[in-house]
């Protein structure tokens, strides 16, 4: 599935009666990389979940390659080309690495699992270990690889570096960079590590209380100490 343009218009979503996202609009071109920033609790993960159809939708539209997918359920959105690597990784801990990968194949031949091992050779070594026996970094690799095996046209990465050692973060960022460079998918990247998020992206948006309060290029954000201080809580990058 080739990379697709993702167009979000006036999206409002949340959980139950609680509106978390309000009037969110942005567009990512096919093959583009968008980093989504904001402090904790500002709606970043809810945005990812909403794109995957895991929250309650109140208003607005989500279009993938020009096709409106707003009314589709979670599995159908996955088939339409949206792939999520959730914040909590959510691998199947009772299944082996290979079985977890199989779950992401979406009908592709089993041999396609090799792609995951090429991206993350560590998983090949662990292929018969249970998910519960993996380190945090390995779990993240597995969650990412499982999602990529489904050949999404838009990949949602929700805080993939959270709680991981710097050396693992570097490995993952290198893999994400390779994926992005291949141009095979549009990538949305939610991350708390500011420099990683800025280095990765073509464009950046900042969420504050469920609304987009800033959007622009990474370099523009780097240079804007006031925005960084107000919305991210850091005093500027040098």
């Amino acid at each position: 599935m080739p990379a697709a343009e993702l167009d979000i218009r006036n999206l409002s979503a949340g959980y139950g009666q609680t509106h978390v996202l309000e009037d969110v609009s942005f567009m990512v071109p096919a093959g583009g990389r968008l980093s989504i920033l904001g402090r904790n609790g500002m709606g970043k993960t809810t945005l990812m979940a909403s794109l995957m159809g895991l929250t309650r939708h109140y208003a607005g539209s989500i279009s993938l390659a020009g096709q409106n997918v707003t009314a589709l359920g979670t599995a159908a959105r996955s088939h339409a080309g949206i792939g999520l690597v959730p914040q909590t990784r959510e691998i199947f801990k009772g299944l082996t690495v290979e079985e977890n990968l199989f779950a992401g194949l979406k009908g592709r031949p089993r041999s396609a699992i090799e792609e995951a091992y090429v991206l993350f050779p560590r998983l090949r070594e662990r292929r018969r270990n249970l998910g519960s026996q993996l380190s945090g970094g390995e779990q993240q690799m597995l969650a990412t690889a499982r999602s990529i095996l489904g050949q999404p046209s838009v990949l949602l990465l929700d805080e993939p570096l959270e709680g991981l050692a710097p050396v693992i973060c570097d490995m993952l960022m290198e893999a994400f960079g390779r994926l992005a460079a291949s141009g095979a998918m549009t990538i949305l990247f939610v991350e708390q590590r500011l420099e990683s998020a800025l280095a990765f992206a073509d464009d950046v948006i900042i969420l504050e209380r469920g609304r987009i309060v800033w959007s622009g290029k990474p370099d523009a954000l780097r240079a804007d100490a006031e925005v960084l201080e107000r919305y991210i809580g850091v005093g500027g990058l040098h």
């Binding site: 979670t74 996955s78 999520l84 959730p86 199947f92 009772g94 299944l95």
Partner: peptide, 16 residues
């Protein structure tokens, strides 16, 4: 077995 663990997760992987 995956469905038993978490149906939502399986659904996010495109499995009905």
């Amino acid at each position: 077995r995956g469905l038993k663990e978490d149906p939502l997760r399986i659904s996010a992987l495109g499995i009905y």
